[in-house]
Write a protein that binds this DNA or RNA. Structure first.
Lengths: 247, 247
DNA sequence: ACAAAAGTGTTTTTAATACACCCATGA
DNA sequence: TCATGGGTGTATTAAAAACACTTTTGT
């Protein structure tokens, strides 16, 4: 937090719930926080990557900036999913004191705009080195969190599941080029169930949102898979034509 | 606005996009606003029902309160759908001056939490008398609006359509007891297309979310329709079991 | 030649669509 | 008795689900 050199708006913050998927598990990215407990001893817990916005900063910009500053991740597709404005959300003395000491301002109440994103953990290992105060934690069983960040994660996960079921957000959340198997794994991990690979390919390919590329996987010890990319224009057209309802 | 007698938080506001459906049209509820134009003349335009939150007030509470104060509507199911935090959203001199003169505070930047609701206009005629500075305007062709309220309506409508297609929000937005025809009309108006009544009933009733009541319409000049109510528990169970994806 | 994941087709089951008449009530 | 909207069934078409083997590559 660079509160000394930028003009912050201490009433509004952003928080980022970054989901990471590997081949077997869904994780969240958390930042380790040091704070003084009730006895004045140094203690540690975790928080989401987040910060106050700057006085003339757009919320989306603040979310991206914060994520980069705290974790080193950049160029991530972040989506705002809710605002948390309960006046009691910052009320525990340790949280209030931590905010006052890190900002130097008399913080009373903060409304936060929550963002989520989903990234491939194995990619992030090489491409985006994650700063060492940030770490991946199990999304089902995360450690004690600051503020109402447990609630933000829970709601973010619901939002992610819903989004995945109702629109092709999976494509947005994968790298530009991906294999169909990667997309299927993403669905399986987030929806938490196995899908039939033949039926999945049929359904996905019938929709024409995916374009097959020339390029194949290289160096894999099995038949190499073709890469695909998402064709957004075709999806938008489809959405216009298809006005049904599903629930 | 009772800014004189309550302690307001001038950084955060709520705005309500209230959709009203009659048998033929979708409308939005707008409040007439008087302001001083560039030449210092009194002029009029429209705004959404909205206000700054109070210092220790929950956002949902602020939205309900505001709606009641400005329109007389109460007990409406309001759903938060987005935050609008562009630093330029309040930049036109007429808007800035209007805020300063109505609050008496040096407003610079306001982040607003947007809510939407949908109500039956014919119901509201008798049950909820709408205050006379509020009026229903065509959702496709609304008058000139204050701030970025045109954008809030556009995004609210997208949200409403999406919500209706992907979850049984229709039930939430109708009175406790309603006929299947009312539900169908709601779908037709919002999705802007005709639906086959036999197929609609089949699909809706197959889902078991609806419970038929003993009660029928009275005083209608045709075969009276049964009233139904939404069974939320059955829906929640269904959502757990059905983890497919649709897009 | 073996292991590992990619890729492919058919049958069965379920859901969506298209379509037209009789029913109960108030005027 | 007429006008109005409520309520129903069937046949066709389209989509989802279930299911097992062959292909290509690296080791």
């Amino acid at each position: 937090m660079k509160s000394a050199i930028r003009s912050i708006n201490p009433h509004i913050s952003v928080d980022c719930v970054i989901f990471g998927f590997s081949t077997s598990q869904l994780k969240v990215l958390l930042i380790e926080r040091e704070y003084l407990d009730e006895q004045g001893n140094m203690a540690k817990d975790f928080k989401l990557p987040g910060d106050f916005i700057s006085t003339m900063e757009d919320l989306d910009h603040a979310a991206c900036r914060t994520l980069e500053e705290l974790t080193g991740l950049n160029d991530i597709f972040l989506k705002q999913y809710a605002v948390f404005g309960n006046p009691e959300r910052i009320s525990r003395p340790v949280d209030v004191n931590w905010l006052i000491s890190t900002t130097g301002l008399p913080i009373k109440r903060v409304v936060t705009s929550a963002y989520f994103a989903l990234i491939n953990i194995s990619d992030s290992k090489d491409e985006h080195a994650i700063k060492n105060n940030a770490s991946w934690q199990d999304v089902q069983d995360f450690p004690k969190l600051a503020f109402d960040h447990g609630e933000l994660i829970k709601r973010g996960l619901e939002h992610l599941r819903n989004a995945l079921r109702n629109e092709p957000i999976g494509f947005e959340l994968l790298p530009e080029k991906f294999t169909i198997r990667e997309l299927q794994s993403l669905y399986e991990i987030i929806l938490n169930r196995k899908l039939d690979n033949r039926n999945f390919r049929k359904k996905i390919l019938k929709s024409k949102f995916l374009q097959q590329l020339e390029e194949k996987q290289v160096g894999v010890a099995h038949k190499p898979a073709f890469f695909y990319q998402f064709n957004k224009a075709v999806y938008e057209q489809h959405k216009k034509d298809h006005l049904g309802f599903n629930f």
